[in-house]
Design a protein around this nucleic acid. Sequence first.
RNA 1: GCGCGAUUAGCUCAGGGGUAGAGCACCUGCUUCACACGCAGGUUGUCGCAGGUUCAAAUCCUGCAUCGCGCACCA
Length: 909
Amino acid sequence: MTTELSKGYQPGEVETQWYDRWVDAGCFRGDESSDREAYSIVIPPPNVTGILHLGHVLNNTIQDILARRARMEGKEVLWLPGTDHAGIATQSKVEQKIRKDERKTRRDLGREAFLERVWDWKEKHGGIIIQQLKRLGCSCDWDRERFTMDEEYSKWISKIFVDLFEEGLIYRGKRMVNWCPKSLTALSDEEVIMKPQKSKLYYMRYKVVGEDADGRPDRWVEIATTRPETLMGDTGVAVNPKDERYGDLVGKKVLRPFPEAEIPVVADEHIDPEFGTGVLKVTPAHDKADFEIGVKNNLEIIDVFNPDATINEHGGPDFEGMDRFEARKKAAEKLDEMGQLVKVEDYDNNVGFSERADVPIEPRISMQWFLKYPCVEEASAAVANDEIRFRPDRWKKTYAHWMEGIQDWCISRQLWWGHQIPVWYRKEKSEELQARENLSSEDAGSDIHVGIDPPADEENWVRDEDVLDTWFSSWLWPFATMTNSDAEPSATEKKFYPTTDLVTAPEILFFWVARMIMAGYRWRDELPFKNVYFTGIVRDGRGRKMSKSLGNSPDPLHIIDEYGADALRFAIMRTAPLGADIRFEIANEGGKEIYPQVVEGRNFANKLWNAARYRNMQEGSAEFEPSALSIYSIDILAKLDQLEKDMAAAYEDYRFNELSQLLYDFFWSNYCSWFLESSKGAFAEDADPALRASTVATMDLVLKRVLLQLHPFMPHITEELWVNLGYRNEGDPEFLMQTPISTEATLSELEESVVEAAKTKVKAVYEAVSRARNLKAEYGLSANKEVKFIIDPESDFTESDVFRQLVGAAEILIEPGFEAEKGVPTALTAIGKIYLPLEGLIDLDAERERLGRELAKAEDEQKKINGKLANENFVSRAPEEVVAEAKERQKHWQERVEELEKMIESLGD
RNA sequence: GCGCGAUUAGCUCAGGGGUAGAGCACCUGCUUCACACGCAGGUUGUCGCAGGUUCAAAUCCUGCAUCGCGCACCA
């Protein structure tokens, strides 16, 4: 049963209808009780505040392709979805809204009320991205959607915190951390982005206290710094002990200009004598290196900043309350007034910025919780020895490098939205305990409670206010989404863990991938996934990363509405080579943005649609009978078999761009442009019914196979066409993703020699057609102009019907030994000489010129190949086949040149 | 500074020792009874530069240049 199809494909309704049907039928469900081989992916959980961007489209289309393909290969598939609570991002979003709507801060509301508001917001607006993923066609098991702050998931966080604390891997301490003065929280090293900055290098001079060796009363030492505003926190000056200029200064003191104080000169190997003046001002509270020098030399630590990086009371009345950048100018001015500013130079340096808030971070000493990573060795080894395969594998090196230099992870955040640290201090001692410089499992006496549940007499305890880094919940994602923390591994976990593939961006290799591997070994004793596919970054047409601030990121939902999800999916896959960045083109036409790659995708969908329509216009159907096939059918089926082989190989290597390109080329060029056109004669009124039957059977077979292969890429249209073409029989699975993909070659029953002969002949015909069309075009005859061709065949030529059809001729005469009139346009082809007699239109000059151009080309080729064969080394050392092939080519061009010369000669002068 | 990647037609990009490819754009002709979101034909390249290996290099190696990314970082 077939349906009448509209002239053009309209994706809108088709897509949403099919999606609803898939969901209603529950075919995205991963069945843990199934006997089938398991295939699983956990989604990289998007931020709950997130909205879909093209990066998500890329990432999730790949996952969907893998999931659908696996289903069609008969596997039991679980694609587990969910969202991430995204601590800072979500909290700032809600804070902003409250500030705007009510002019209140989170502190005005208080912790509890604020958190209620975040939850409200999450219920209302969170998870938009989930709806958007559905519109893209993602086949996630939505019944299993997880959120990193679900009750059960949160228990996991407490459990692992307790585990690691008891093991001594989690400790609390006063350390130098990256502080974000905007979000008012500590950050991990990974959340800091170095950005090149145009800065100034200030040269200032400090007076040396007391007399120097020469007895001069007035000795000054020059110091270069980029941060004069931290001067008030200087508690020392450091020089390299090997630096002869300053050796005698060590142990003396210099005078800090303001607030005026005597500070010691110390020696430290790390000072580069080449930089600046070779003298470093040491501000232990505001620089990591300075901190270390300070500790070594027992220097005082003076923090001159408030948490928001304004100057605090240590700055003195001139500076207190001032922003750090203002203070920088002010400090320079003040030094200048005092005559202690020597010079200011332009200087390029790198400054760390907060990834989220995009402001320079401050190194700041504060009380934080840290984690020594578990299972580093196992995690390193797993990737090094390919137990976990990275694609592209060059990321292995980056991973190994990071793992080697791994630093303790600052896991506490001074936020409210997140997993609050499961540590309670006994009320009466809480202040003292929280101020303690070091706190680890050994100190966890009866005054500290570290547990999954609060202490029984909770009213007598105070809970640690900090929450955990968002990534501290993400690293459990693969298994915490499957099994509860207090239970034995669930049936789901037993079936689907470790997961098969992880598809993610290389940007979060350290944030997420590396940590998941460690967590996998630590709590599950094995790897969390077997393959990691790193996508590229989606850039705009000019190569810039897409971002909100640049406004160069088109909304995928608009694109889907206009072109269809399938078009977008196909477009982005066709331009996504393994691990390379993707340039998403944006063109402007009459003020409207268009996306050329997506247009191609849409056009391809339309092409498919119409090829199906063409099939439906031919009545009836027929059994596929290999022995009855025309050479054209054999040819297209041979190409189909090759396509499937090539695709299988490309899947092995996750080469999605190649997969989509293979399908595109096969279908558009080989199937539509050549096979379908060649088949048209079979549907003429007087055509042989047997030919017609075998042609219909071939069309059905190709369409079925192509729809199956294409389904993972373009799930909606393929499903629609499968039904409209009547390919679903009684008893068949209800949906394409449940339909096994065929792997058997369509021509396996035919002798290889028969197939080869057909391919050779068809190739010759098609080439001859191209040349004949070219002749027509050269002589200004439009493609639909029905002309007469005369063929002087090489051997028996039986394909004139198809030839006529493809060329667009009224008549083909086969005349062996035909002698053309002088000047008749002629083409030399593998099937013989083709003449285009043009009554009354003979133009000797035109033909002479045309043949001249062809001769020039042929001579060019001949020269190249002659040169090659003239090289004795080539003939004696190259493999035999290569030489034979070259000789073949030489012969071919030789004959052609001779032939063309003769033809030109026959035209006379 | 160290590491990784890219450099191929006007544009976007495939290819990866043996005849330089696709789509778009452009030019010509076509409303041919699946598709103008289409059909047919055509034009376009010192495959970044310089060396090397090889019978043969766009492809492998070395160096350089430019662009991008990651890590480290000197105040």
